[in-house]
């Protein structure tokens, strides 16, 4: 196992410029991954540097904990964020996380990192107003760390193995928490078999994000029908390799969530309502089948702030949403 070479620089500016020159950043400045900081991150996660977090066989890539730690430092993470970054890397590098396809695709798919459990509040992961955007260190740097691993370790470099026609700003960083405190809804990680007190990360590779606005409906069914219309306008093809386990993530916004809570709808109720309607045969080019194998494949997440009557649809690329515990 190789260890990262050490380089000496006269100044921070010289280091950053050299990193830009070598193509080791996402186009933004980075924090220097000093050996001391990398060691502190590894210690925080209880990992040795040569621990393998995952592989990308098509690319002959093996990602070690040391490599992930260096990129987490560069992304601006604090040491205590690193176990969460490790879980995100492990999730994305699962075979059906499909790193090679989702980071090389012409479509410019992005990775959503969804955080559940106590670690959200311990790290200050935003799950309310503005949670998709800038202003929150944990969100910004954990999502960025995964993307830097994809770039610097998994070789997802634009013009090389990243062949996106446009790419997307979500590829700088896309990380948010589920607002578990908003209701008694079962959190995503619990739906996926983990204990409520277990922190976890779900990584979902998305082909595109679609905002499903609905300022008119005043009840749960009306909101669900809007979700169906918006998903079916795009369609989801399904994939033989993914089988019946495919996913779509629906981030239910505050103003829509209210109607579900008022009417006592659980996540399972929403899944049962949506599933047959999504899987119904196409009727036109703008009303297409959204092929999801099971109701449980529709992943419902509460997040976002008050105001907009909107939810967000994270439509899948060729991968499963993978949930990994934070250990």
């Amino acid at each position: 196992m190789t260890t990262a070479a050490q380089h000496a620089y006269d100044s921070y500016e010289a280091l950053v410029e050299d990193y830009f020159e070598k193509g080791w950043t996402d186009g933004l400045p980075i924090m220097p991954p000093t050996p001391e900081k990398v060691a502190a991150f590894l210690e925080c996660a209880g990992l040795s540097g040569d621990e393998v977090l995952g592989t990308v066989p098509t690319r002959e890539v093996t990602c070690t904990a040391e490599q992930a730690a260096a990129n987490a430092v560069m992304a601006g993470c604090l040491p205590e964020y690193f176990p969460t970054v490790v879980a995100a890397v492990r999730a994305h590098l699962q075979p059906k996380g499909n790193c090679h396809s989702t980071t090389g695709t012409l479509s410019g798919a992005a990775q959503a990192v969804i955080i559940n459990g106590p670690i959200r509040n311990e790290l200050g992961v935003a799950s309310g107003a503005g949670c998709f955007g800038p202003g929150f260190r944990a969100n910004a740097t954990i999502g960025r760390a995964l993307r830097l691993v994809i770039r610097n370790v998994c070789r997802g470099i634009p013009g090389f193995l990243d062949r996106a026609s446009y790419s997307t700003p979500a590829r700088y960083s896309f990380c948010f928490g589920e607002n578990e405190e908003a209701s008694d809804w079962e959190p995503l990680h619990v739906q996926r078999g983990l204990a409520p007190e277990q922190s976890a990360v779900t990584v979902h590779s998305l082909m595109k994000m679609v905002e499903a606005t609905d300022f008119t409906s005043r009840d749960a069914e009306g909101v669900c029908d809007t979700l169906v219309t918006n998903i079916r306008a795009n369609g989801i093809a399904g994939d033989a390799w993914l089988g019946e386990e495919g996913n779509v993530v629906i981030v239910v916004g505050h103003e829509h969530h209210r109607f579900f809570v008022e009417e006592g709808w659980s996540k399972a109720d929403i899944q049962q309502y949506l599933w047959p309607r999504l899987n119904a045969p196409a009727t036109s080019a703008t009303d297409r089948m959204a092929r999801i194998g099971k109701p449980e494949g529709i992943l419902i997440v509460a997040a976002g702030g008050a105001g907009m009557g909107a939810s967000w649809l994270l439509l899948p690329h060729l991968a499963l949403a993978i949930t990994e515990p934070v250990s």
Binding site: F215, T216, R218, E255, R258, A306, G307, M308, G309
Partner: peptide, 9 residues
């Protein structure tokens, strides 16, 4: 306040 939502038709 609710039941009037912040933005609505």
């Amino acid at each position: 306040d609710y039941p009037w939502v912040p933005i609505a038709i």
